[in-house]
Amino acid sequence: MSDLIQEIKELIIEVLDLEDISPDEIVATEPLFVEGLGLDSIDALELGLALKNKYNVSIDAESEETKKHFSSVESLAAFVTSSR
């Protein structure tokens, strides 16, 4: 799980052009969007596409569950694990 968390952090930095941020600065339990890292809706779409390509997970943009999955790195890792 911690390997996956590290991998997702690196994916976030890579696909969202966060060159100035290191993986250690992303706290796995903190919010990714608006608060915390401060990502926005375009980032959510970009990250969704990257997760789909890398882990072959299917993401329903309309679902309330998806919002929960995207709330933190930890919840994303749990989502990826349960979908594999």
Binding site: L16, D17, I42, L45, E46, L49
Partner: peptide
């Protein structure tokens, strides 16, 4: 077939 949402916007 994929389009990057960020690149598009």
């Amino acid at each position: 077939g994929s389009v990057s949402p960020a690149a598009f916007s």
